[in-house]
């Protein structure tokens, strides 16, 4: 069975139409916007407190990188859109007509993965740039350590790597969806990966805390970007772990999708 370029292109176009016409897509985007606005509000309050503090106190402020606060939520919400590409079809049994229209399962799952990747890339870039813009706007010329990016060019690695990790997360979520088929199960797993696990890591002994935290999706961003962070991986190592996530989730999802009887 070969993947036919024309059929593949049509399948991608159909998947885009499907995702655009799902109400949940817009609800999850709204979630991403809300998380970003909340992040901006927190930063705004932090800057006000900073301005009211004395010079000695100001030095004790930690770096106010808004991506640290907002991007895990963005990863969840954009990732959920990727998951829904598959689980919404299993949940409503519309996977049947979809497979009748595109019976080559590799083509269908490939089209869904491509669309998930493009949504992750676009969504990741938009929300990372939003976080960057509100940091520039609210922090202005304030110095380090509160200002993570005294020069705007300092933010480039963080914005790029945030975008990449959101893309990775969205493809991983799509793969999980193909594996688990259920929306509830997939979103719970996704939430555990990007929101709950980082909190859980804090309760481990310090050595294990660092080891676990270093391989969690949200923490791959700073490790991939290099610079100052408490984690263990080099940018290359973080890239390898990110690739591992994609290979594992997408591979298992695609395998399950191709092997199991459907509808």
């Amino acid at each position: 069975m070969t993947v036919l370029p024309g059929a593949f292109r049509d399948a991608i176009a159909a998947e885009f139409l499907k995702v655009r016409t799902l109400r949940s897509t817009w609800a999850f985007l709204g979630g991403g916007v809300a998380a970003s606005l909340l992040g901006a509000l927190i930063l705004f309050m932090l800057v006000r407190a900073y301005d009211a503090a004395g010079p000695a106190d100001r030095l004790r402020y930690e770096t106010a990188d808004p991506t640290v606060v907002t991007m895990p939520f963005v990863m969840f919400f954009i990732g959920a859109i990727g998951a829904m590409l598959v689980t919404s079809e299993f949940g409503t049994r519309s996977i049947g007509p979809s497979l009748l229209a595109v019976p080559q399962r590799r083509t269908l799952i490939g089209a869904k993965a491509t669309v998930a990747g493009l949504i992750g890339l676009t969504g990741g870039a938009v929300f990372a740039l939003f976080a960057f813009a509100d940091a520039r706007l609210l922090l202005g010329n304030r110095p380090a350590p509160i200002n993570p990016w005294p020069q705007w060019t300092d933010a480039i690695p963080t914005v790029l790597c945030s975008t990449l990790i959101v893309t990775v997360t969205t493809v991983v979520a799509m793969g999980l969806g193909a594996l688990l088929r259920s929306t509830a199960g997939t979103l719970t797993t996704l939430g555990s990966l990007v929101l709950v696990a980082p909190i859980f890591a804090h309760f481990l002994p310090t050595v294990w805390q660092l080891r676990l935290a270093s391989v969690l999706l949200p923490n791959l961003t700073p490790q991939l970007a290099g610079g100052n962070h408490p984690y263990l991986l080099s940018p290359g190592g973080a890239g390898a772990v990110a690739a591992g996530y994609v290979l594992l989730a997408l591979g298992a999802g695609a395998l399950a999708f191709r092997r199991r009887d459907t509808a």
Binding site: D10, A11, L17, S94, I95, G96, A263
Partner: peptide, 28 residues
């Protein structure tokens, strides 16, 4: 080949037109 295996196999949130348009798009 045109087939109907399950009358309920359409996403309830989509309109009739969009449901068919998604299938149509995938087959040019």
């Amino acid at each position: 080949v045109g087939a109907v295996l399950d009358a309920d196999a359409a996403h309830p949130g989509r309109t009739a037109f969009v449901h068919l348009a998604c299938l149509a798009r995938s087959n040019g």
